[in-house]
């Protein structure tokens, strides 16, 4: 069943939460792919000449949630609320202070670098800033060739090129672009290249860290549609991070609302939209233009 940890919810909201969880989400999907329990990521704050630890930034403070295979979980909150930190902790770019991260039942938070390697093929990430997410000194072919070289080392150079061309087509770009460099592309095209790079290793789970926040509104919709199409074709699971509730609501089956390192509300997308419980969610909703 739905594995949502409710310990962090204020006591008064327990009942309503319960009702929600028996709703749409549970019925639609299968087993839980990712389970995060009591995740904490604290950054030490140094000060003084001796750089003594003066305190901690509680970037992620006791967060629990789970992601069902084949679904999209939206993570929404204002800038600085700890969304990126959660994403990075999931792929071991940051070491969690405490808590467990279970991927298909295996606690990956405590795995060594080498033991985690197979998961790098399963979990990928798409970044917010399309202008810095591609190495400016590499051609598109080299950018897409890098993950292929790591996880499919036996591919011959020609089949690597072939595979890269297929990836480009998959994200709606022309195969001729393989020889071009990032600066020759628009923001939206670069984001597509970033998506192609994430797809190269044939992942099951993709963390999309504000993939459209830096893009023009006109381009945003195209990228979101692409992500949805890819999900349908490839059966992907997304953790979709954004600071804009409208985008998240459109994309997600289930929504986590985050502020100051904590998840203050989680519910299905419809419920978040129609009857937000937490004042912070309500505030976020007010910012969404209603048609």
């Amino acid at each position: 069943m739905v594995a949502v940890d409710r310990r962090i919810q204020p006591a008064g909201e327990e009942k309503k939460q319960d009702k929600r969880h028996s709703g749409g989400l549970a019925a639609a999907h299968g087993s839980s792919l990712l389970e995060v329990k009591n995740l904490k990521v604290y950054f030490p704050v140094y000060s003084g000449l001796l750089r003594r630890v003066r305190g901690h930034i509680r970037a992620v403070d006791d967060v629990s949630f789970s992601v069902l295979a084949g679904t999209t979980v939206g993570l929404v909150g204002e800038s600085g609320s700890g969304k990126t930190t959660i994403g990075r902790a999931l792929v071991k770019l940051i070491k969690p202070t405490s808590g467990s991260i279970r991927y298909r039942g295996v606690d990956t938070a405590n795995l060594s670098k080498r033991a985690f390697f197979p998961y790098r093929k399963k979990i990928q990430m798409i970044f917010q800033d399309p202008f810095h997410s591609l190495n400016p000194r590499m051609s598109v072919g080299q950018i897409l060739g890098e993950p292929l070289g790591i996880h499919f080392p036996h591919l011959s150079p020609s089949s690597r090129v072939e595979r890269s061309a297929v990836l480009l087509e998959q994200v709606g770009l022309k195969p001729e672009y393989l020889r071009r460099y990032p600066h020759e592309f628009s923001g939206g095209q670069r984001q597509r290249i970033g998506i192609a790079r994430a797809l190269a290793v044939e992942p099951e789970f993709i963390i999309c860290d504000e993939p459209v926040s830096a893009l023009d509104v006109s381009v945003q919709a195209a990228i979101i549609n692409l992500l949805q199409d890819l999900q349908e074709q490839l059966g992907l699971t997304y953790l979709f991070i954004a600071h804009d509730l409208a985008v998240v609501e459109h994309m997600s089956d289930h929504v986590l609302v985050m502020t100051q390192g904590r998840i203050v509300e989680q519910a299905s997308a419809e419920d978040i939209y129609s009857s937000p419980q937490h004042p912070y969610t309500q505030k976020l909703l007010e910012a969404v233009p209603r048609l």
């Binding site: 770019l93 979990i123 990430m125 997410s133 190495n135 400016p136 290793v201």
Partner: peptide, 27 residues
Amino acid sequence: RPFILASEVMGQSSIKVLFRHFLPNLA
């Protein structure tokens, strides 16, 4: 930079990150 993070997320070795990503950008 996200492209370095991307390289780490895909499991690139540190030496290769140094030579394939840092070096060309510092060249």
